[in-house]
Design a protein around this nucleic acid. Structure first.
Length: 848
DNA sequence: ACCGCCGGGTGCC
DNA sequence: ACCGCCGGGTGCC
């Protein structure tokens, strides 16, 4: 057994915090010594990795714990030797997952994937250390991956990730109706409102619930946690408590007093009033710091004996039903006021554990309610055996629990260490601001597996930090499963504890000037002719890159002619064979296409290529994707079935950022395009309304972002740029600077989509301008979500700029079609085709 | 034989 | 552990 039994979760091995750490990859290692420990692991289960520097056999030892914090074994010595320094120096945090169940019950070792997380600037160090230790670092996009043992695991992992979200979606949905409850009239004098009776019903119901906690199911006579896949034969304890998060002003305090009253011993032991003496009023006087000792009484010895052996967690130590309420000092008085107002005098005895306070546990147990503050708790914690920590309370209520923010803080630790059968987190504040670390609350509530840091991080916090949709929905689902929130406005309905302000998306149509229009029309008809030829000859696929090129140019003109050379045909490959290997010119052009475009999705993985490869048949892929595909599919190009070998693949040159100045000089002193002037107009309007409003302008064309700089500066905007060529570190610096406030603070961020990937948080802005329509609506969605995500305080307005009567309008049309398809009957089937442009799409886009 | 080879003892860190 | 590894016994053909 492990030693940290009190709190019920292990100290995490993850030193690097979630905020800016990312998955470097994973290594395979054995868990050894299973023979010597009792911890069981079933397949696909997460395990805790905990350093054990004092191990007498190996200072590098890393022990492995299962979900229940029971030791399973150790990480094999060689791997531990390589990882220990990384963990100790907090360069990495590690999470283990056991992919397959042990072959037999008396196995000696067990394979484990160790996922390593680190800050981006430490990736190289980690890679080097892993290599030094003789291990292979597996990467998600490793082409070799398809064949390794790890692949099986990873594939399953992918499936399970989807499944995890389904599980989350399911939980909390089956929450039954609440049966309203009446408080005992002997104690509560006031009449409760309907919603308060319901609230009371919910509270009482949860405290007396015998149901399995959320995410647990009964299966084959045993119990399984469907999230962690942990199986056990012991029935997990019900979660007797939760989060009570009614809006302010709905009377949470009275509802909670009613809850306390239902378990108070009044009127049964009316005689006890005399023993402990003092009504509420009496207590009120004795509560002040200077006189709180006055309530000291000699306890009876029978109780003391019981208290002394309170190590037994299951024992209800004294039979007492004392509720401990922890709250900020200012809130105590409002509790007292409500006590006076709503309860029968003398029916609930209270003690203020605050200032000069008793050290006598037995004394404390005489009261119905003991109030204390977070800072008192924190001050006491660390003293040996402070009574408040030693007592096993009947119930603990954390009021205004949102004041707990930092898991590492002493006061948080003190709160989590409190012992009680019934635990409540009470808050009236929806989680909207950026400090929304709910882990302390999960730990306090003993809500497994979220009360275990690694699980919290990987299941909720990390997805949330990286701005993924599933992060938010998981958080909402799990909170929904254990909390009650009603808002003043939305009566009856369960308000969401995690609410985002609204997002308004509008499309602003831009009219081209007469000159621009003429230019565009000429180009478009040229383009139509070319594409029509390919279509008639059925050679669209063989001229794929040319077609992409044409479309790209048309889209560029919609933004600004400066993005595109005047003669569209000059950019088309002269050679109809499109063989890059025999045509270095074409390679160059394609490379520029990739660089300009910034939005080419690899047709295999449907996301922007990491290492861009151009085939001799002029199609574009991620290096890893095309390598993997060639291995599987008889060496054919997935687009045109051209035979390919490795020598037919060309790495696109890395993007250069040095041409910025060149671009700038090229682009300066030109008349402003219609789209740019429209953007300026909109930005100025919003500045007029509120000068502090911050905006993000997204374009997929790097040149467009450069081109915008000067006009924006001239119009008096302080701007920043975020592009794909920046290192992650630099990106975070830019975002940090962008969120600065003050008279000289930047208000406009020019961003490329590629730079706004996972982990990028742009909530400082409340306006988003999308300069062009994106191929795939999901990508636009993602861009908006960098701004519209947890931490956003304001309503978000998104404006898409679309040139009317242009290819942009048709792209919009295509997007709509695809959305319809995706949500329609063919939903799942259409998903793959959705992102790849087909001939039919091309027809629509080119008006052919 | 300062070797190779055999087979028994043994087994996390 | 139906392994690897260690260290003792052993030794031409």
């Amino acid at each position: 057994m492990n030693d940290d039994d009190d709190v019920g979760f292990p100290e995490s091995s993850s030193a690097a915090e979630a905020a800016d750490s990312y998955l470097v990859g994973f290594v395979l290692a054995n868990i050894v010594g299973l023979r010597y420990y009792s911890g069981a692991v079933s397949g696909r289960e997460l395990v805790g990795l905990v350093r054990e520097p004092l191990n007498p056999f190996d200072p590098n030892a890393i022990k492995v714990l299962n979900t229940r914090s029971i030791q399973v074994g150790h990480i094999e010595r060689t791997v531990a030797a390589a990882l220990a320094p990384l963990l100790d120096s907090r360069v990495v945090s590690a999470e283990g997952i056991v992919p397959k169940p042990p072959k037999s019950s008396n196995s000696f070792r067990l394979a484990c994937q160790i996922h390593l997380f680190a800050r981006l600037d430490a990736f190289e160090v980690v890679r080097a250390a892993v290599a030094e230790g003789g291990m292979q670092l597996f990467d998600v996009s490793d082409p070799e991956f398809g064949l390794s043992e790890a692949a099986v695991v990873k594939e399953r992992g992918g499936k399970s990730a989807r499944k995890v979200d389904e599980i989350f979606a399911f939980v909390g949905r089956d929450e039954g109706k609440i049966t309203p409850a009446e408080p005992p009239k002997e104690v509560i004098l006031s009449e409760l409102f309907d919603h308060q009776r319901e609230g009371l019903g919910w509270l009482v119901g949860r405290e007396n619930s015998c149901e399995l906690p959320p995410f647990w199911e009964e299966k084959d006579g045993g119990f399984v946690n469907v999230l962690t896949n942990y199986k056990t034969h012991e029935r997990p304890n019900p979660l007797r408590g939760g989060i009570f998060a009614d809006d302010m002003g709905l009377g949470k305090t009275l509802t909670l007093l009613s809850l306390i009253a239902t378990s108070s011993r009044y009127p049964v032991r009316r005689y006890a009033t005399e023993i402990s003496g003092g009504s509420v009023e009496g207590k009120m006087r004795s509560c002040s710091a200077t006189t709180s000792r006055s309530s000291k009484k000699v306890g009876n010895s029978r109780k003391r004996q019981k208290l002394d052996d309170d190590g037994g967690e299951n024992e209800d130590v004294s039979g007492s039903k004392t509720t401990l309420i922890v709250c900020p000092p200012s809130v105590i008085s409002s509790w007292i006021t409500q006590l006076e107002e709503h309860t029968r005098p003398g029916s609930l005895k209270v003690y203020l554990y605050h200032g000069v306070r008793t050290r006598d546990e037995e004394e404390l147990m005489k009261y119905d309610i003991v109030f204390t503050t977070y800072s008192t708790l924190s001050a006491d914690f660390g003293y040996s055996y402070p009574p408040i920590q030693k007592i096993k309370w009947y119930r603990v209520i954390l009021d205004e629990a949102h004041v707990i923010k930092n898991f590492a803080a002493q006061q948080t630790k003190a709160v989590i260490a409190l012992k009680a059968e019934r635990r409540w987190v009470v808050t009236g504040t929806p989680i909207q601001n950026s400090s929304f670390d709910l882990f302390p609350h999960m730990a306090f509530l003993r809500f497994e597996p979220f009360s275990i840091k690694n699980y919290w991080l990987s299941l909720v916090q990390r997805p949330l930090d990286q701005g993924s949709k599933s992060g938010l929905s998981r958080l909402q689902a799990l909170l929904g499963a254990i909390s009650l929130r009603r808002t003043k406005t939305a009566q009856n309905g369960k308000g969401n504890l995690v609410a985002l302000p609204p997002k308004i998306v509008e499309t602003y149509f831009v009219d081209l000037s007469a000159e621009e229009r003429e230019r565009y029309d000429v180009m478009e008809s040229e383009a139509q002719n070319t594409v029509r030829e390919y279509m008639n000859a059925d050679t669209v696929l063989h001229n794929y890159s040319t077609v992409l090129h044409i479309i790209l140019r048309l889209r560029q003109i919609c933004n600004d002619v400066a993005l595109c050379p005047s003669d569209i045909t000059s950019l088309l490959p002269s050679n109809h064979l499109e063989d890059v290997s025999k045509n270095p010119e074409l390679l160059k052009k394609l490379a520029s296409l990739v660089e300009d475009g910034d939005d080419f999705d690899c047709p295999v993985c449907l996301s922007p290529p990491t290492k861009t490869v151009i085939t001799c048949c002029a199609h574009i892929f991620c290096q890893n994707c095309i390598l993997r595909t060639l291995k599987r599919h008889n060496s054919c190009c997935p687009i045109c079935r051209h035979l390919l070998s490795k020598s037919d693949l060309f790495l696109a040159p890395e993007m250069q950022s040095s041409d910025d100045d060149e671009c700038k000089s090229l682009l300066s002193n030109r008349p402003i395009s219609s789209k740019v002037s429209t953007l300026l107009k909109l930005l100025l309007e919003s500045k007029k309304q509120d000068p502090s409003t911050k905006s993000v302008v997204f374009s997929q064309f790097k040149k467009m972002l450069i081109l915008l700089e000067q006009p924006l500066k001239d119009a008096g905007f302080c701007i920043l740029r975020l592009d794909g060529s920046m290192s992650m570190k630099k990106r975070f610096e830019v975002i940090n600077e962008f969120s600065r406030v003050g008279p000289d603070a930047p208000t406009v961020l020019l961003g490329s989509l590629r730079a706004a990937g996972a982990g990028i948080n742009l909530t400082a802005a409340s306006r988003v301008y999308l300069l062009e329509p994106w191929w795939n609506p999901g990508v636009e969605e993602q861009a908006m979500d960098r701004v519209h995500r947890i931490g956003q305080q304001k309503e978000v307005r998104v404006v898409r700029l679309i040139v009317s009567g242009s290819i942009e309008e048709r792209i919009l049309e295509l997007q709509e079609r695809k959305k319809r398809l995706a949500t329609g009957a063919f939903g799942r089937k259409a998903a793959k085709e959705q992102k790849q442009m087909c001939v039919e799409d091309l027809r629509i886009m080119m008006r052919l």
